[in-house]
Design a protein around this nucleic acid. Structure first.
Lengths: 232, 232
DNA sequence: TGTACATCAGTGAACGCGCGTTCACTGATGTAC
DNA sequence: TGTACATCAGTGAACGCGCGTTCACTGATGTAC
């Protein structure tokens, strides 16, 4: 290994360590991440951070992208672990993985899905990683629809301009999802986000101590609404 | 009117004005509300605020309670405007009112339902006001159940310890709601929160420009899941 | 009705703190010949 | 293999800013007699 690549490796390790320390700070400071506090924790002077990140916002962006990717990987791995034909099992696994990641990394979850950070606009580079979880869910619907194994129960059908919007979005996503099914899939994603957020942000009802059961049940309701085949 | 009550009235008006200015600041600063900035906007010196609020956190608490109450009033008024027997109309009206309030007051909505403010713990006085919106939704279910007019479509039933939790919660709420119905009502509340949050926090799909229609449709899906009678 | 006193809002200075960012610098590590 | 130079990480001081909170104070407004 050449000398210069040693230097490069050390540099990459420093970047990783800064991000790790910053991640830890998110838990207490929220998105008011302080460069100086991170530097202090690393035993460096605050200006040294600028060797690695050009500004506080760039560090924040790096953390956001990393968090999206961590969540996305967890979710995709949970999906991949299941038999492709076990649509409902995949749906549950994906939802549980998202919740599990959120519970394990509440501060990062808040960074991704909490209120927007004042004065910070997420750059375009976050868009791709941010779509991994919902696209994983949509993927399940696509597989199920292609196999003719999704039978949504009767419910209100999208109509008018919404129907056209959904058709366009479905075309972009590919797989020929019917509008009604796409809408229900998005409902499932919204519900997943809502459940995790309520639980993490402390607004879940204390009268329901069995949170795992509650979560699973609410996810099952959405799977029913979507029409994922129920286990025999 | 006695002289002292004039003083009291002026004082109350000052408190209101401080809260109004602070509310305006929420829009740009988020929950990092600055006492000094509020004082500046009022043309006062920062220490003068302490005549009215003992600390920044107390001001924040006052804003939170006021926001919950504003949302709660909007929601309850929307419900009250409808014929009691029009269950689905009430459900839609309540959900639309909540969304409307959120869109009109995004910063306050974020204060209530966004990520927790680091270092700030909401005091117990916020609990009551915070429950007004979900209790309004539950009230619709209670009325419908009492009238025997809710027919939930078949779906996964709550079981095991969750069923017991739900039974206890239903007993607290009164009205004898079945466990399954209570769970679906909570699903509706979660979905409502998720929809508004996604829309406000900028994570709604740009491919769905007809947001009102999208919202209404997603709400209708939840009304279907709950089993609110559909219009003839 | 007039006067002495008490209450209260608001001032201005200060304390002690933290922040992001810039900049000239030191020294160590790598590169080229 | 040795030497001159370039690169780069990290330092330390500084700039200019903002913050919440305390405190002794001034004046105006209200109250009691």
């Amino acid at each position: 290994m050449s000398a210069s690549s040693i230097r490069a490796r050390v540099r990459a390790e420093m970047i990783d360590e800064i991000k790790a320390v910053a991640r830890r700070h998110l838990a207490t400071d929220g998105a008011n991440l302080s460069l100086r506090a991170v530097a202090r924790d690393m035993g460096m002077v605050s200006s040294a951070i600028y060797r690695y990140f050009p500004s506080r916002d760039e560090l924040l962006t790096a953390l956001i992208i990393e968090a999206y990717d961590a969540l996305g990987s967890a979710v995709e791995a949970a999906d991949a672990d299941r038999d492709r034909a076990d649509l409902r099992g995949r749906w549950h696994a994906v939802c549980r993985a998202a919740r599990g990641w959120g519970l394990a990394h509440p501060a990062e979850y808040a960074l991704l899905y909490g209120s927007p950070v004042p004065g910070y606009a997420a750059p375009d580079a976050t868009i791709g990683p941010a779509q991994r979880p919902p696209l994983t869910l949509i993927g399940i619907l696509r597989d199920g629809f292609a196999a003719g194994r999704i039978e949504p129960p009767p419910a209100t059908e999208p109509a008018g301009p919404l129907r056209a919007d959904l058709a366009e979005l479905a075309a972009q996503l590919g797989g020929g999802l019917p509008e009604a099914l796409l809408a229900r899939g998005m409902a499932g994603w919204t519900q997943l986000f809502g459940l995790i957020s309520f639980e993490l942000f402390g607004r879940i009802n204390r009268a329901l101590p069995h949170r795992d059961h509650y979560f699973d049940h609410q996810i099952a309701l959405m799977a029913d609404l979507i029409g994922l085949p129920r286990p025999a």
